[in-house]
Amino acid sequence: MNEFYFNTKLDQTLLLGTKARSVAELLNGIKSAPESSIYYHTHRYLQQHHFLSPEPPNDFAYWIQEVLNEPRLGELMYSVDVVQFNSLEDLRNKFIEILEQHSTGNGKGQTAPEGQEFHFMASQTFVLRTPYVANDLKQFAEILRKISVNSLYYHIFDAKLRLEKGENDFSRWFRDLGKTALADEVVRLDPYTHTLEGLRARILQLVQQHDKN
């Protein structure tokens, strides 16, 4: 049997009790933070503002731009294309590379005013199985219409980057069904540039197209 079990996930936010006042301290923090912290700070806006497109940037970029008032560095951090990364370690190293390059020859730089420090946080994720199971594309589409955005989020974002499965859960299942073209099309979507409802609608559209073929 080739079934797709829909899971959902809910996150608890952990406070790590460490903070940064400057680019140098941010760099140290990023180096030593757990992966769940890198995940939190690159996905918080996406989760909390999933109805916005374009979304605000990752927390590191936002803080550098808005608090430290360093627009060039902020832009470099902003433009890190999360969709290109298959592991949180690789993503962490990209941020480290940008910050280290900036630190060379840039003196001490700005310091955040009191009360506007960067606070390191992390996500603890709880995965739950929903009662929904799809046996074919038709059932998959019906369920996709009604699941929560958390379920969509889990199978698309968590599956690929947090759980390091290489690609999203939907595409893996489509491949198992022999729907390789559909799997590839869903992989090609850049989920970071859609609202979650927009993403749901786009995947639904693709599934319905391929279900007819």
Binding site: L10, D11, Q12, P34, E35, S36, Q48, H50, F51, A122, S123, Q124, T125, F126, V127, L128, D158, R162, L163
Partner: peptide
């Protein structure tokens, strides 16, 4: 999405469950 009482209830439930689980990703 973030500041209604239903989210607060969710946070309380997660907090109570998390006492028994310390992993980053918990499968319930």
């Amino acid at each position: 999405n973030n500041f209604l009482i239903t989210r607060h209830i969710k946070d309380y439930l997660l907090l109570f469950i998390s006492i028994f689980h310390r992993e980053d990703v918990v499968y319930l």
